[in-house]
Every structure is written in C-alpha cells, then in structure tokens.
Nucleic acid binder design. Structure first.
Length: 362
DNA sequence: AACACGTGGGG
DNA sequence: TCCCCAAGTGT
C-alpha cells in the first residue's frame, strides 16, 4: 500500500471530522457544535489554561484552573491580586516563573490593553510568559486567527505524518511551516485543538493507536517505518545529584518556622523551611551555618526529589522549641494552615518527613 | 544554542 | 525502580 498525498484541504477535513466526534471535553474549551456556530472561548480562560498546560498534564491542570477562576473570575481580578496569593494558589503545579509572569501578564492586559487581550499573535507574544506556542494558540482558539500552533503533540503528529528525520529541536522551524500549510482559514482554533487531541489520545509517544487515526492512510511513518521512532530527539544529559539539609522547627503551639525564597531562580518567590544550599558536596557539615537558630536539632531521615535538571537528596532535621523564637526574615506558621502556604512539593515532603501528620486531614 | 526551570503519572 | 515525559518560556 502506498502513502497517499495529503493536501491541506484533505488534512483539515479529515482531522475536523475526527475532532467533531472524538474531541475531549475540557473546562476551558468551547465544544465543536458551539464553535461551528461561531462561539469562541473567553480569551482569559484560554490564556489561563494555556499557561497552566505548559509542560503540564491536563489532569493536573483541571483543579488549578477551577480554583483560579473561582478566586479571580476575570483578568482584572487577577491583575489586582496579591502576588503572594497567586503563588499560594499555584503551589504544587511547578515551574513557578509561570505564576510570577501570570500576574504580570494580567496586569499588562488590564493596564495597557484596557482589560482585553491583544487579538494578534504578535501582540500576544509581547506579554510576559506568552511565547511562540501560547501566542499562536490564543490567537487561533480565542480569536479565530489562522496561526500555526506547534506544541509537543503537534510536533509528534507532524514528525510522523512526514517522517521527519531531523532531530528536535532543530526540526521545529520546518515543522511550523508544515503546520502552517495545513492550518485552514475555517476553524483554525478547532484544527489546533484537534491536532493536540490527536497527539494526546491517538498519536501517543508510546504504542500509538494508528488504526484509529484519521491520517492512517496518509502517514509516512506508518507506511515506511515505525511511527514510535518519531519524533527523533537529541540525546539528553544525565541528571547530577545534589545534596543539602533542611531544618524543620516546631514550637509549643504546633507552628513551623518558614521563610520566603528569593524571587528569582529555582522555586523563586515560594515558601521554604530553612536549609543549606543544594550542591554536589557530600557533606552535611556546612549545615551548621544554615541553622536558623540554636536548637536541639535531630536528624529525622532524608527525602529525595527530582527536579528537571538535577536530583536532590535532602537530610531533614527537626527541633522542638519551647516557644516561637524570634528569627530574622521568617515567621511561625501553624501546622493547621501549612496547606494554604506557597509551599512547593519538595518543601512539603521535607516537612512531612519531620512531622508525619503535618498534611494529613483532620 | 543551550540551559534553567517542577511535578506526578504511566509503562 | 527507573525512565519518559506533558498544551514551553526566558535568558
């Protein structure tokens, strides 16, 4: 069997027909029947979901999307929000620069654009935290622009459809051209979402369900090779191990000593328990200097946490103190309200290691 | 261009 | 257990 030529018209027709029947229903999405009647999604909802979805699974995003809309129903509300509250609400979702940029972006939209998102790719891309992908996605989905939307899903679909031999990320420019050629003037937003749904549900990284794919007869990878070998990627580097220590102090009122991290860099602007720097050094000895105050510190085990570019092994120390000692820069937070703080997951792990009941309900 | 930047789920 | 990776952006 030969691989039939794929025209742009065929691609859009095949994909949109598939999407009408098999699209996912998502909280931020306008379903195809509505979309076909010209209803477009709220740009604020589209932007919020797209930022949350950067490198993050749909499953993880749903609850956060609901929470943010509940707390800040409009972009003006978010623009007026306290940064600390935004960081608290984002805690656990990761890539915290997104949360810092989120409020900056809302502020820019509210103050510089009268509360309306720009309706062009160029205007959108000028906003904080909005890059090439997100600008194209918002333009297509919320403003019906014919922009070429290229994310990890689309890269996978395109790389297989055309059996692209160039490795990522070098192949991206060429793929954007291919997507641009296929994107229809009618329903470009649905086309983009359909490509992403296809990548997420059919054209998956492992064991793609090619028999169910609308491009089944048109896919060069399927007809000439093993689709699973695409996209070809540059080799990744191995993760170094870093070591450190964390200090969990508990006072006689069941409060834990916390402090705020610097606004930039790893976990920037988030809350932490005091600790050492994290380095490759194999010593907990420098940890003496990192103790927030003198107390009967006792080792209570280690935790491991994997970041994007290194693995962390943290030695956790605990101390019970009679009363809340004054200490520069931090504060004492009751265990009961720890869950409302801007604590990244690694810090919750460290606290849970020292206080096993800290995050248990009741 | 290459690297920094989180987390949780699935195979 | 370990590896992969998920709707990327900023520098």
């Amino acid at each position: 069997m030969t691989c039939e030529t794929l025209t742009a018209e065929d691609a859009a027709a095949l994909l949109l027909t598939w999407y009408d029947r098999h699209h996912r229903d998502l909280p931020w999405r306008v379903s195809p029947p509505m979309a076909r009647q010209g209803v477009v999604a709220d740009p604020y909802h589209v932007w919020l979901s797209e930022v949350m979805l950067q490198q993050t699974t749909v499953q993880a995003v749903k609850a956060y999307f609901d929470k943010f809309l509940r707390l800040w129903p409009t972009v003006e509300d978010l623009a007026a929000a306290d940064s600390e509250d935004v960081m608290k609400a984002w805690a656990g979702l990761g890539y915290y620069a997104r949360a810092r940029n989120l409020r900056k972006c809302a502020e820019a939209v509210a103050r510089e654009h009268g509360g309306r998102f720009p309706d062009t790719e160029e205007g959108l891309k000028a906003l904080p935290g909005v890059g090439a992908y997100t600008a194209a996605a918002i333009a297509a989905i919320a403003f019906n622009r014919r922009s070429a939307v290229l994310d990890g899903n689309v890269e996978r679909v395109i790389s297989r459809l055309y059996a692209v031999e160039t490795p990522l990320p070098a192949a991206k420019a060429g793929m954007r051209q291919l997507v641009s050629r296929l994107t229809p003037a009618d329903r470009p937003g649905d086309f983009a979402q359909a490509m992403m749904d296809l990548g997420a549900t059919i054209c998956t990284p492992k064991r793609p369900a090619c028999t169910l794919c609308p491009f089944h007869m048109k896919c060069m990878a399927l007809h000439s090779a093993d689709p699973e070998t695409f996209p070809i990627k540059a080799a990744k580097k191995e993760k170094p191990v870093r070591l450190g220590a964390a200090f969990v102090a508990i006072d006689n009122a069941d409060a834990v000593y916390l402090r705020k991290r610097p606004d930039t860099g790893l976990l920037g602007g988030m809350t932490e328990v005091p600790g050492t720097d994290w380095s490759a050094r194999r010593d907990g000895e420098t940890s003496v200097d990192a103790r927030p105050f003198a107390a009967p510190w006792e080792p209570c085990g280690t935790i491991a946490h994997v970041f994007t570019h290194f693995e962390l092994r943290l030695s956790v120390y605990r101390a019970n103190v009679a009363e809340a000692l004054p200490a520069a820069g931090g504060w004492w937070e009751p265990i009961a309200t720890l869950n409302m703080q801007a604590l990244p997951t690694v810090m919750k792990k460290a606290i849970a290691q020292a206080i096993p009941h800290a995050f248990k309900p009741g």
